[in-house]
Amino acid sequence: MIYRYVWQATMAAHFLVIAYIALGGFAAWWRPRLAWPHLALCAWALVQLTGLVECPLTALENWGRARAGERGLLPGGFIDTYIEGIVYPEEYVAVVRLAVIAVVLVSWAGLAVVIRRRRRRPSRTTGTSAAPAPEASR
């Protein structure tokens, strides 16, 4: 029973990671520090596209599935099992990948604009106090 929870939790984490890869750059508009984990996950996604290494989440899910007596993921891994042919038709793989890359690039361009605007704006914590100085009495 615990192995079922392992692979199901891993599957949910996998969906969250993929969503963060696609949309995490927009979260960095709110908190620029989120750009670093987003950049790391995007780099990892590019490595995964080469097919040279197996995703650790895929390995963990397959391990949990095997221990639970379930069939493993398709040879293409998580995306081939849960997304391609289900969320979008398989013949649109290249189009979807390009669309995700475009979304990521737009989010990073927007992040650059957000950071530039924040640097131009004077800080609220420095400078003089917000209350006006009292006028001298006559």
Score class of each variant (00 low, 15 high):
Met1Cys: 10
Ile2Leu: 10
Ile2Gln: 10
Ile2Cys: 12
Ile2Val: 15
Tyr3Phe: 08
Arg4Cys: 09
Arg4Ala: 11
Tyr5His: 12
Gln8Ile: 15
Gln8Trp: 11
Ala9Pro: 08
Met11Arg: 12
Ala12Val: 07
Ala12Leu: 09
Ala12Asp: 01
Ala13Glu: 05
Ala13Trp: 06
Ala13Val: 04
Phe15Gly: 03
Leu16Ala: 14
Leu16Phe: 15
Val17Lys: 07
Ala19Ser: 12
Ala19Asn: 14
Tyr20Trp: 11
Ile21Asp: 12
Ala22Asp: 11
Leu23Arg: 08
Leu23Val: 09
Trp29Glu: 11
Trp30Leu: 13
Pro32Ala: 04
Arg33Leu: 10
Arg33Met: 11
Ala35Asn: 03
Ala35Arg: 09
Ala35Tyr: 01
Ala35Cys: 05
Trp36Leu: 13
Pro37Arg: 00
Pro37Trp: 01
His38Met: 14
Ala40Leu: 06
Leu41Tyr: 04
Leu41Lys: 00
Cys42Leu: 13
Ala45Met: 09
Val47Gly: 02
Gln48Arg: 15
Gln48Leu: 15
Leu49His: 14
Thr50His: 06
Leu52Gln: 11
Glu54Leu: 10
Pro56Leu: 10
Pro56Ile: 12
Leu57Gln: 00
Thr58Ile: 08
Thr58Ser: 09
Leu60Tyr: 00
Leu60Trp: 04
Glu61Arg: 07
Trp63Thr: 09
Trp63Ile: 12
Gly64Leu: 01
Ala66His: 15
Arg67Tyr: 10
Arg67His: 14
Gly69Phe: 06
Glu70Ser: 14
Arg71Glu: 11
Gly72Trp: 04
Gly72Lys: 13
Gly76Thr: 13
Phe78Ile: 06
Ile79Asn: 03
Asp80His: 02
Tyr82Arg: 15
Tyr82Leu: 09
Glu84Asn: 14
Glu84Trp: 05
Gly85Leu: 03
Ile86Ala: 05
Ile86Cys: 02
Val87Glu: 04
Val87Pro: 01
Tyr88Gln: 10
Glu90Gln: 10
Glu90Phe: 14
Glu91Gly: 09
Tyr92Asn: 06
Tyr92His: 00
Tyr92Ser: 07
Val93Arg: 01
Val93Leu: 05
Ala94Pro: 02
Val95Trp: 00
Val96Asp: 00
Arg97Lys: 07
Arg97Gln: 02
Ala99Trp: 00
Ala99Asn: 04
Val100Cys: 00
Ile101Thr: 08
Ala102Tyr: 03
Ala102Glu: 03
Val103Asn: 00
Val103Gly: 05
Val104Phe: 03
Leu105Thr: 15
Leu105Val: 15
Val106Trp: 00
Val106Gly: 05
Ser107Tyr: 05
Trp108Phe: 01
Ala109Trp: 06
Ala109Tyr: 07
Gly110Ile: 08
Ala112Phe: 00
Val114Pro: 11
Arg116Cys: 07
Arg116Ile: 14
Arg118Ile: 10
Arg119Gly: 05
Arg120Ala: 13
Arg120Gln: 14
Arg120Trp: 15
Pro122Ala: 01
Pro122Asn: 04
Ser123Gln: 14
Ser123Tyr: 07
Arg124His: 05
Thr126Asp: 09
Thr126Ala: 10
Gly127Cys: 05
Gly127Ser: 13
Gly127Arg: 09
Ser129Gly: 11
Ala130Glu: 12
Ala131His: 02
Ala131Cys: 06
Ala133Glu: 15
Pro134Trp: 05
Pro134Lys: 01
Glu135Phe: 09
Glu135Ala: 13
Ala136Ile: 08
Ser137Lys: 01
Arg138Leu: 12
